[in-house]
């Protein structure tokens, strides 16, 4: 196996009774990078995280985290990892500080060091003045959960759908925290159902579906495979549609599609969406063409999967 990888998996399989949750997954995550594991519900993302964090045994294949085999050396793996799961796995009846001290002591930091680490982490996630966890908002719980995952300053951090159910502001806070950790050298593996999230955070994305890896690459590579974003303009006056199509064509340097019935002009914009959008709007306005609606549409996750799984109906 790769000695240079923080996470390695080879042919990782897991079955529950007759159902196959993971059908042979390979992973190589370089230290200090963020890997996105992208896939729909039931793709096997959580199963993969549970195996890599020693919570579940694989039924086939093998995996190493931080240089240790997850099946034969679980304790060593646990000393090197942090886990932030789908639930905020914290004790409701304790305060945030008491939670972190508990997990710190159980990570064998010793009482004094656990106290100091709890105080440090609470300040870092902005919860140093918060009371009992039962009164926390969803975002606060998730931040406490993240802090709990960071107790041991892990070299590898696992985040299982960390922003599911969070409001946009809490999500932005969490994204910032992940970026800071990665900048500090922590290897991060995060699972998500959101293309945007993987795009924002991950150095490389592994797309999984039905327990298999269906694609892997940088966000740019994956987007290129999908043809990127499309600019869509709805023109108010149907008679100026041809003129609008010509303008959009020039701005995007692509052949636009024109739909007479809906007075719609659309064209691919590659990765230059905002620049092209501005240019097209300026040109339309200079020509005196009134737009009823202008959108820059990103490919949806559905489209990613339809594309990556060869258009199979799901």
């Amino acid at each position: 196996m790769h000695r240079l990888s923080a996470i390695v998996a080879r042919g990782l399989r897991r079955t529950y009774g007759g159902t196959t949750a993971l059908d042979g997954i390979d992973l190589d995550v370089r230290p200090g990078t963020v890997r996105g594991l992208l896939g729909p519900n039931g793709a096997g993302k959580t199963t993969a995280v549970r195996i890599l964090t020693t919570l579940l045994r694989p039924t086939g294949g093998r995996a190493e985290v931080a240089g240790f085999d997850v099946v034969t050396h679980p304790r060593q793996v646990r000393r090197s990892i942090g886990l932030v799961g789908q639930h905020a796995a914290v004790d409701e009846q304790l305060t945030g500080r008491q939670n972190l001290e508990l997990f710190g002591r159980l990570s064998r930091l010793g009482a004094k060091a656990a106290r100091a680490r709890a105080a440090e982490l609470l300040e870092r996630v902005g919860l140093d003045h918060a009371g009992p966890v039962s009164a926390y908002s969803g975002g606060m719980r998730r931040r406490l959960d993240l802090a709990a995952g960071l107790i041991l300053a892990p070299s590898v951090l696992f985040l299982d759908e960390p922003t599911t159910g969070l409001d946009p502001r809490s999500r932005a806070d969490l994204w910032r925290a992940v970026r800071e950790l990665a900048a500090g050298g922590t290897t991060v593996l995060l699972t998500t159902q959101y293309l945007e999230e993987a795009d924002q955070l991950a150095d490389r994305i592994t797309v999984v579906d039905a327990g298999r890896v269906v694609a892997e690459g940088t966000p740019g590579e994956l987007k290129a495979r999908l043809g990127g974003e499309r600019l869509v303009v709805v023109v108010r006056d149907a008679e100026r549609l041809a003129q609008a199509a010509a303008i959009v064509g020039r701005a995007t340097s692509a052949a636009p599609e024109v739909d007479q019935d809906t007075r719609r002009v659309s064209a691919g914009v590659g990765t230059e969406g905002v620049r092209v959008l501005t240019a097209a709007l300026t040109a339309l306005s200079e020509a005196g063409i009134e737009a009823e609606d202008v959108t820059l549409r990103r490919p949806t996750l559905d489209e990613v999967f339809l594309d990556l799984t060869g258009g199979d109906a799901r």
Binding site: T54, L83, A89, F103
Partner: peptide, 9 residues
Amino acid sequence: VTDRFRSLP
């Protein structure tokens, strides 16, 4: 919480 405990050393 049980999983959290189990992921600790």
